[in-house]
Design a protein around this nucleic acid. Structure first.
Length: 131
DNA sequence: ACCATGACTAGAA
DNA sequence: CTTCTAGCCATGG
């Protein structure tokens, strides 16, 4: 096992090549996990970050999502919300209301920019993917 | 090179 | 209960 890499399991983050060039690691992994989210389910940035071994860099997940619109195949960024199920990223959609619309379309109830029954709909990549 | 900001989170006050 | 602080790391001025 496990040879815990201590502090930086994903030290390769250094090799990130954002926007413009082809993504190599972190971004791609984020997209990959995000694409595994089943329809009608949601997850959080932190969950994805934890799945990649970088729980503390949930911000980077959000940043990666910023490029999700340019990623292919498309990444269901609308299924990714913050830890309390709030649609923190709705303002990054165009139009902003599309995120909520897409979620409702999948049967997810959204109330006041928050996912209803978030705890039930929550999909944990670490648990589901076995990381 | 330094400082500020950000689709986050956990823990302390 | 609410509010603040610190940590994460890439991007932009």
């Amino acid at each position: 096992m496990p040879a815990p890499d201590n502090k930086r399991p994903a030290s390769r983050l250094k090799t990130i090549k954002p926007s413009g060039t082809k993504e190599d690691s972190f971004f791609e992994q984020v997209y990959e996990v995000a694409r595994q989210i089943p329809r009608g389910r949601v997850t959080s940035y932190g969950a994805i970050a934890a799945c990649l071994g970088t729980r503390l860099s949930a911000r980077m997940v959000g940043w990666a999502m910023n490029g999700a619109g340019s990623a292919k195949p498309k990444v269901p960024a609308h299924r990714v919300v913050n830890r309390i199920g709030m649609l923190s990223g709705k303002h990054h959609f165009s139009p902003p209301g599309s995120m909520e619309k897409l979620l409702k379309k999948e049967g997810i109830k959204v109330k006041n920019d928050q996912v209803v029954d978030f705890n039930t709909l929550f999909w944990d990549p670490v648990k589901e993917l076995g990381f």
